[in-house]
Amino acid sequence: MKRADRHPLDDALLDVKLLRFLEVLYSTRRLARAAEQLGQSAPTVSIWLNQLRDALKDPLFVRTPSGMLPTPRAEQLMPSVREALRVLRSLNAEPQPFDPLSADRVFRVCITDGGMLTLLPHVLASLRRLAPQVQLEVIKLGPDAGTLLESGEADLAIGLVPELDTGFYQQALFDQVWVCLVNPEHPRVRNRLDCEAYAREGHIEISLGTGHRMLAAALERAQIRRKVFLEMPVYLGVPAIVSSSDLIATMPSRTGHSLARSFGLNLFPCPVPVPPFTVKQYWHERFHHDAGHRWLRGLVQELFLEGSSLRSDTSP
């Protein structure tokens, strides 16, 4: 450290061992007993006392028949000495464990709108049961996910965020393939959906997110130009539109299965070869060892990790 960078009082800081000695001598009133408790020799603690006297410009302790009695200056210093030692000891203390039953904390999670439909209800139900005082704030997963995780404005991101790399951890949770939602009363698509029918029919396009880009790239490779009659930024409202029209909605399988089940829609594998992808949870290395953060990640892992815990964290 350059001299110019030092605080003007740094050179006057007392050594921690001197503060500890001051505390023990104040309690024992005997140099010999203080030396014994500290595992030091009598000459050593005598040197320490002289160092303290020089630094604090006061005798601090005076010999009497009843022992080393503190001066008014020593009496005045002791509350500050004890508080300083308490703070220093707390730095070495084990971090407090996270108790979900008593925790009063806000967790913030970045998640896709599809995840809000399919994953969020399970996370919230588990939080209400296991951590009843914990609050959950949901943030739409977007290009600012890395910034939010790094700053601590978000704890986790759940989805597909391939651009997160240096400084971030990630854990694979489950794989997604692509499916199509179709009205069960569709006049032309009943028992199967092939590429020819897919190209011929009208479509709903969900226009945001990494998934949209993957689907668009696959359609281009297959040289299929869909007839998009409705473009939407989110999945909200898609089931109602599919069930009241002849439009087809293409989406990741977890969202598709959930919506088909809830709204009585037909579900078909997407006939266009779209690469599957893996949904992961992401977090910044700043919070990797935080007890509450570890608990939340463990909860997400328990809820959504496929194949138990065989997959491990990937470090930055």
Rank of each mutant, 00 (worst) to 15 (best):
E220G: 05
S308M: 07
Q281D: 07
S207L: 10
L215D: 02
W178Y: 15
D246Q: 13
V123R: 00
F98T: 12
R53I: 04
L117T: 04
K17W: 09
P275W: 06
F229S: 07
D194Y: 11
A35F: 06
R311V: 12
L14K: 15
T250P: 01
D246L: 04
G298H: 09
T278F: 01
A260W: 11
H186M: 10
P79I: 02
A131L: 07
L259Q: 13
F107Y: 14
Q301W: 05
Q96I: 13
T118W: 09
L173P: 10
L173H: 04
A197S: 05
I139M: 08
R200K: 07
L31R: 15
S151T: 14
V106T: 14
V279F: 00
G67C: 12
H122V: 03
F268R: 05
L69G: 00
P121N: 03
F304L: 05
L18P: 08
R311I: 09
G211I: 11
A93R: 14
S315G: 02
D10R: 07
R225M: 05
L181A: 04
L69W: 03
A154I: 08
V177L: 01
M1A: 14
F168S: 12
L56A: 08
T44K: 12
P276A: 12
D144L: 13
W295H: 01
D58A: 15
L303D: 04
M232I: 06
F287M: 06
L265Y: 08
L173I: 06
V24A: 13
L60K: 00
P162D: 02
R297H: 10
V242G: 03
L173R: 02
P121Y: 03
P275Y: 05
L9G: 02
L25M: 11
H293Y: 10
P95I: 07
G142N: 15
